[in-house]
Amino acid sequence: MHYRTVFDIPRDELLAPGHGLCGGCVAGTIVRLLLKVAGPNTIVVNPTGCVEVSTTTFPYTSWRVPYIHVAFENAAAVASGIEASIKVLQKKNVIDPSKKINIIVIGGDGGTADIGFQALSGMLERGHKVMYVLYDNEAYMNTGIQRSGTTPLFAWTTTTPIGKVLKGKIQVKKPVAEIVAAHRVPYVATANPAYFLDMMNKFKRGLDVDGPSFIHVIQPCTTGWRYDPRIGIKIARLATETAMWINWELDHGEFRVTVTVPKRKHVRHYIRVQGRFNHLTDEDIETIQKYVDKEVERINKLVGKEVIGPVVE
């Protein structure tokens, strides 16, 4: 069943409050909604990161499903072991073979796109039935806002500071979901918590497909992106409205933009509300705008029609 309205969404909370995520941390929202989709027959693997340290400080845990953290760079390999193990133990009747157990990795951008990428690639290639959810806050937030492979162009971080010579990150964001898609796995999608039904339906689809799935979710970070926590969801929405973030899915080779944007906002609406972009000149913003325009053109071409419209405001 598809989630059509908010009233379709399960009430059960499998992430308990009392966790130590920053006030307004959108990762909390993403994980909560993910667990609502997955339900109790779920094992979560979580690489080192914000979600891990803030939900599992002994003797307290916020998890109401089985959960394991092992290290930073290996969540996909741990999940592979769990999946293979359940498969063989079900074959041997040690675990009830009729029981469907979801295996989900919830990883940040560091643990997924950078240090954990090798393990992820291995898991995808081997075809383990695991759903990997990347909550992408675009920097190493857990260690205090250092640049990652998914930090966007020009963004300030503590390792891409604003100096006389260099101003912010000089490279563009790594297209993680597309690199994952190149592994030809059954289901890859990008999602945005502001569009929660779209995101949750993608989680659902990811759990249903036979084989690995990957959902790349944008996650505004109040601490690292430097904004008032109350506008976290608004910023997420602006990312899609400006096409800085495009919600798409690739389901068994079929590409679809799931949230169309007939009239696009200029990227400055997204950029000017975030402290990490404070130093940007109008020209810098135009550079980003041009980059986004090109991306939009590419995506529209891929779909074969205009799913993301022109900039109108």
Partner: peptide, 29 residues
């Protein structure tokens, strides 16, 4: 944060496991 007593090695689970699911509700924020 939280008011669980600090106990010794004889009483804690092995390997740092937490056996009470969702017990962070005992730690208001």
């Amino acid at each position: 944060m939280g008011d669980k007593p600090i106990i010794g090695w004889k009483s804690i689970p092995l390997g740092g496991s937490i056996t009470e699911p969702g017990n962070s509700i005992q730690r208001p924020t």
